[in-house]
Simulated assay, not measured.
Amino acid sequence: MSIYEIFNSLKSDSLSFIYKGQFSDTITDKILSLIEVNISNNLVELASLKKKVPFLMVECFQNIVRHAAKLEDEMGFFMIRNIGNSYFIASGNGLMNLNIPTLRSRLEKINSLNKEELKEYYLEILNNEEMSKEGGSGLGLIEMARKSGEKIDFAFYPLNDTFSLFYIQLKIKSNEEHTQETIPISDTISTINHATELHKSMRDNNILLIQQGDFSQDTLFSILTMVENNLNQMNDVSNKNKAIYHVLVELLQNITKHAYSASTTNLKKGIFTVSKSDNYYISSGNFIDTNKTDKLKQHIEQINSLNQDGLKLFYQRVLRQNTETSGLGLIDLARLSSSPIEYNFYPEDNNLTFFEITAKI
């Protein structure tokens, strides 16, 4: 699955963040920080969502961290998408099949209640049932329904005779009178099935992380901190972790510096992904001026023709010749990669071309 295909599947989004991996307090704090930067930039008028979205994200994280079954080959899933005036938040985790009937019954009951009835149900559980060791007895689900003001979309997907994947999705829409839905939201995007299909695609293609949207310096810092913490929890060689981190810096800065930006918005829209099979594959994509593609292709082909010693000499020559250090990032990328840089160009129209690039670590 190419970066361009993923980008097109999310093109209606102002923000897409999709993550499959370990969930710890450190990781969830960094994801929250990252999303809060984005919603601060996006929600200029939608003040009513600025507190709701982080609150509901925390409830989803707690659901994963506290209640997920420990599966050997399955990791937690989290997604947040901003489309027009609505946010979609979804999570997925392993669940023992024997727990499905009780959970399904509780969710169906929650979805049948209005706002006042949800409040009464919350108090009823709080007063009459013991809190579980994991920290609740369905209270988090009730709070999700109360805060979102929408029914909880949910699904169970069997893995084997013992375990299933459990998904929930919330929709949060601004209730401010002066806002209007600026982008029509199709039924395909708004259903839980779209979230589960994205997770399946990530599992099938070994993708750990997808982010699509506007890339600012604040966003970059949050992304890099989150990835660094995630890498530190894995058992990879430290030198490889350093290489991954530096490749991420180069690719993300490439979007920030070189992505096409309309003069009316100044947005630097792009996408990056992190995948892992036997190696790590870090990819990014963004629109560029079509007139720049030939020169960029020649530069990458020249870089790919060189060995490590040649790359070092080429780097020094470019550094001496260019006061603005143009092209050094791609040379650095090649020096850190374990194979030649992979790239593609996809013409969008006469003026814009989508440029995708992948480094193998």
Rank of each mutant, 00 (worst) to 15 (best):
S14W: 00
S14K: 07
L15G: 01
F17Y: 13
Y19S: 04
G21R: 00
Q22T: 14
F23G: 02
S24R: 00
T26G: 11
T26M: 12
T26N: 15
I27Y: 13
T28L: 05
K30G: 05
K30S: 09
L32R: 10
S33N: 12
L34T: 02
L34P: 04
E36A: 03
E36F: 02
E36W: 04
V37C: 15
N38C: 12
I39P: 07
S40D: 08
N41Y: 04
L43E: 06
L43G: 02
L43M: 05
E45P: 06
L46G: 11
A47P: 00
K50V: 13
K52Y: 10
V53N: 14
P54V: 05
F55H: 15
L56Q: 08
M57Y: 09
M57Q: 11
E59M: 03
E59F: 03
C60Y: 02
C60D: 14
F61K: 00
Q62V: 07
Q62R: 05
V65W: 03
V65R: 14
R66T: 10
H67T: 14
A68V: 01
K70Q: 12
K70N: 13
L71N: 10
M75W: 06
G76C: 05
G76I: 11
F78D: 08
F78Q: 06
R81E: 05
G84H: 10
N85A: 14
N85R: 06
F88I: 10
I89W: 00
S91W: 10
S91F: 06
G92L: 04
G92M: 01
G92T: 04
G94W: 09
G94F: 08
L95H: 08
M96Y: 13
I100R: 02
P101K: 07
T102S: 15
T102L: 13
L103P: 00
R104E: 14
R104C: 15
S105D: 15
S105T: 13
R106M: 12
R106D: 09
K109Q: 12
K109C: 09
I110V: 13
I110R: 04
S112L: 02
L113R: 13
L113N: 05
N114A: 10
K115R: 15
K115M: 09
K115E: 07
E116Y: 03
E116W: 00
E116L: 07
E117R: 10
E117N: 09
L118A: 00
Y121W: 01
Y121F: 11
Y122L: 08
Y122E: 08
L126I: 14
L126K: 11
E129H: 10
E130K: 09
M131F: 12
M131L: 15
S132V: 01
S132Y: 00
E134C: 08
G135W: 11
G135N: 12
G136I: 15
G136K: 03
G138C: 02
